[in-house]
Design a protein around this nucleic acid. Structure first.
Length: 567
DNA sequence: TTCCCAACTT
C-alpha cells in the first residue's frame, strides 16, 4: 500500500512502515518498536504521533534501554509508567524492576507494590533477581520463602544467586532440595547452567558428571551456553579431555567465541600452553571466529603458565594492533605476571609504568610473587607497599613486608610493621579448601580441625601423613608462616600441617580407595610447603592428586607436579 | 501475528 506524501516521513523509521496505516495504532507501533534495533529512539516520535504506550510497549522500551547505556532515561521512562496507569501490569512492572541493574534498596521502598503485585511470578522473580544482583542474599531468601508460588525461574535465580555471591555449596544444597521436593518444578537448562557453575567453583566432578548424565537422560538439547558450562565445569575439575569431548560434539558452526574461550582458558590453567595457542589459531584462522578481550586474557594466561614470554609479547601487541582491542588492567596484569615470573623484573616495572591506569592488587601481587621467586627484595618491598596501600586490612601483605625487611636486615622496619599490624587490627585471610567425596563437597578451613565431625580420625590421618613425609626427609618450610603467630619452630610446623589443602588431602586419603584420584580446590594460592608436601604424598601414597588453586592446576603424580614448580 | 522473569568464557 502506498500512501502519497507519507513515504518520506516514515521510510527512515523502518522499511516495513509503509505497510501500516498512516496513523498506526498502538498494536502497529509495538510491532515496529519490537523490530527496530534501537526502539527507544522511536519512542518520542510515537508520542508526537499522539499514540499512548500500553502494557506491551513498556517491556519493549525497557529492554531497549538496557542496551543503550543511558541511565538518565530510566527514571523518565519509570515516570511514564506511573503516569500511564500500567504500573501494576505484571510484565510492565517486571521489566521496570529488572531494568534497574541492581535495585537501590531505598527505591524498593518507594515502589508502590501491592500484595497482588507480588503474586505475579514475573514481578516477584524480577525482584528476586534484582535483590540477588545487589548482593542482598538474606532479603532474596526471605522473598523466596514468602512467595506464594515459585516456578523454575525463581529456583534457577536463587541457585544462580548463591553461586555468584560465593556460596556454591549452598547452591548445590538448594538444587538437591529442588529435586527432592515434589512440588518444585523440574530443572531446565537455566537451572543446570547455574548448578554446573557451582560444580566448577567447587571442583565437584562427581556431581558434574551426574548433571551431564541428567542432561542426557532428560533429552535436554545441549545448546552453546549449556555446552560452554559443561566445558568450563570439566576444565575446572581437571578433566580437560571431557571438556574437549563436549567441544567436539558441538557442530563447528555453532561454536561461539565464548565456547572457544572456555576451552582455551581450560587448557591454560591446566598448563597446556601450546595446545591453548593451537586452539586460538584454529579458532581465528580455520573457523573465522573473532577473539574478544576475554579470549586474549586466556591466551595470555596460557603464555604465563607456559613461561612463553615471546609469544605473550606477540599476542599482547597483536591484540590492539590487529583486533583493535584496548588492553584492560587484567591484560596488563598478565604481562606483569609473565615478565615477573620469568625474572624480567625491569620489564615488569616498565609495563606497570606504561599502563594508563593505577595498578591494582592483582598487579602488585604478580610483581610480588615474581620478585620473591627471583630474590629482588627491593621490588618485593615496593609491591608489598602497593598492596598494603590498596588493602590495608589484608595481613598477608604485612607479614610479607616484615619478611622482606628481615631478609634485608632492616630490623627497625620489622618492628614498625609489627606495630602497624597491631594498631590496625588486621585480619588474617583464611585459607579454605574443598574436596568432594561421594558427591558431597567438604570444606576445610586452615587450622580448623576440631569442628569437623570426623576430627579425631582426620587428626590421626594428618599425623600419619606428616610422619611418613618426615620419614621421606620432608622438613616443613616454615619461612612462610605468618609472623604474627609468634610461634616456636614446632608450633610453626603444626600451623603448616593444618593448612586447608593438607587437611583436604588427608581427608581424601582417608575417604577414598587406594589408587583413586584426589581432587582439591583451594581459594588462595597453594603455599610452597604444601606444594612440596603434596608432591611427596603423591609418591608415598601412590595417588594422582589434583589441586586447583586460585591460579591454576597442579597435577601431582609420583612425586612430580604438572606445573614443573613454575607457578 | 506485538510484552515479561533466569544461563556461558577472565
Amino acid at each position: 500500500m502506498r500512501i502519497p506524501g507519507k513515504e518520506r516521513l516514515i521510510s527512515n523509521i523502518h522499511p516495513s512502515f509503509h505497510l501500516f496505516h498512516p496513523t498506526p495504532d498502538i498494536f502497529a507501533w509495538n510491532s515496529i518498536l519490537r523490530s527496530h534495533p534501537n526502539s527507544f529512539s522511536l519512542y518520542p516520535r510515537m508520542l508526537r504521533h499522539g499514540s499512548r504506550p500500553d502494557s506491551y510497549t513498556f517491556p519493549i522500551l525497557f529492554s531497549s534501554l538496557s542496551s543503550l547505556l543511558a541511565p538518565f532515561l530510566l527514571p523518565q521512562l519509570h515516570a511514564h509508567v506511573l503516569l500511564s496507569g500500567h504500573f501494576h501490569h505484571p510484565h510492565v512492572l517486571s521489566s521496570l524492576i529488572s531494568s534497574y541493574s541492581c535495585l537501590p534498596s531505598d527505591l524498593l521502598l518507594f515502589l508502590p507494590l501491592s500484595p497482588a503485585d507480588l503474586e505475579e511470578l514475573p514481578t516477584s522473580n524480577s525482584l528476586l533477581s534484582s535483590l540477588l544482583r545487589a548482593g542482598q542474599l538474606s532479603h532474596a531468601c526471605r522473598l523466596f520463602d514468602e512467595m506464594p508460588s515459585r516456578n523454575v525461574v525463581s529456583w534457577s535465580c536463587l541457585i544462580d544467586g548463591f553461586v555468584n555471591l560465593g556460596h556454591p555449596n549452598a547452591a548445590l544444597d538448594l538444587f538437591r532440595i529442588m529435586l527432592a521436593d515434589p512440588r518444585a518444578p523440574a530443572p531446565n537448562p537455566f537451572t543446570i547452567t547455574a548448578v554446573l557453575a557451582a560444580c566448577a567453583r567447587l571442583g565437584a566432578l562427581q556431581l558434574g558428571l551426574w548433571i551431564h548424565a541428567f542432561i542426557f537422560r532428560h533429552c535436554i538439547p545441549p545448546d552453546v551456553v549449556l555446552s560452554t558450562s559443561l566445558i568450563d565445569m570439566y576444565a575446572k575439575c581437571g578433566r580437560i579431555h571431557n571438556a574437549h569431548q563436549v567441544f567436539d560434539e558441538m557442530s563447528p558452526s555453532n561454536r561461539d567465541v565464548t565456547m572457544w574461550t572456555a576451552m582455551i582458558s581450560g587448557l591454560a590453567v591446566q598448563g597446556w600452553a601450546r595446545e591453548a595457542l593451537e586452539f586460538f589459531h584454529s579458532m581465528v584462522e580455520t573457523h573465522g571466529v573473532g577473539p574478544n578481550p576475554v579470549t586474549f586474557l586466556a591466551v595470555l594466561q596460557a603464555c604465563v603458565h607456559g613461561g612463553l614470554v615471546q609469544e605473550g609479547d606477540f599476542y599482547f601487541s597483536a591484540m590492539s594492533r590487529e583486533q583493535g582491542i584496548v588492553p584492560t588492567i587484567e591484560h596488563y596484569g598478565c604481562m606483569v605476571d609473565l615478565y615477573a615470573r620469568a625474572g624480567m623484573i625491569r620489564r615488569a616495572w616498565a609495563t606497570i609504568h606504561s599502563m594508563p591506569m593505577r595498578p591494582d592488587a592483582l598487579i602488585w601481587g604478580a610483581l610480588l610473587s615474581g620478585s620473591k621467586t627471583h630474590g629482588d627484595i627491593l621490588t618485593c618491598e615496593a609491591a608489598i607497599k602497593g598492596l598494603i596501600e590498596l588493602e590495608p586490612e589484608n595481613s598477608a601483605a604485612y607479614v610479607l613486608l616484615s619478611n622482606a625487611y628481615a631478609k634485608m636486615g632492616k630490623w627497625e622496619e620489622v618492628s614498625s610493621v609489627r606495630r602497624l599490624i597491631k594498631s590496625r587490627g588486621v585480619k588474617k585471610p583464611t585459607g579454605c579448601s574443598f574436596i568432594e567425596v561421594n558427591s558431597v563437597v567438604h570444606e576445610f578451613l586452615a587450622g580448623e580441625l576440631s569442628n569437623h565431625p570426623e576430627a579425631v580420625d582426620l587428626h590421626l590421618m594428618v599425623e600419619e601423613m606428616m610422619g611418613r613425609l618426615r620419614g621421606e626427609g620432608h622438613v616443613g618450610n616454615t619461612a612462610e608462616v605468618l609472623l604474627d603467630l609468634d610461634l616456636e619452630e614446632e608450633g610453626k610446623e603444626l600451623a603448616l600441617s593444618t593448612h586447608s589443602e593438607k587437611l583436604a588431602v588427608a581427608f581424601g586419603l582417608m575417604k577414598t580407595k587406594p589408587g583413586e584420584e584426589i581432587r582439591v580446590v583451594k581459594n588462595l594460592r597453594i603455599c610452597l610447603d604444601c606444594h612440596e608436601a603434596i608432591r611427596l604424598i603423591s609418591k608415598v601414597y601412590a595417588r594422582r592428586i589434583f589441586v586447583r588453586d586460585c591460579n591454576r592446576f597442579h597435577v601431582f603424580n609420583n612425586g612430580d607436579c604438572s606445573c614443573k614448580n613454575y607457578w
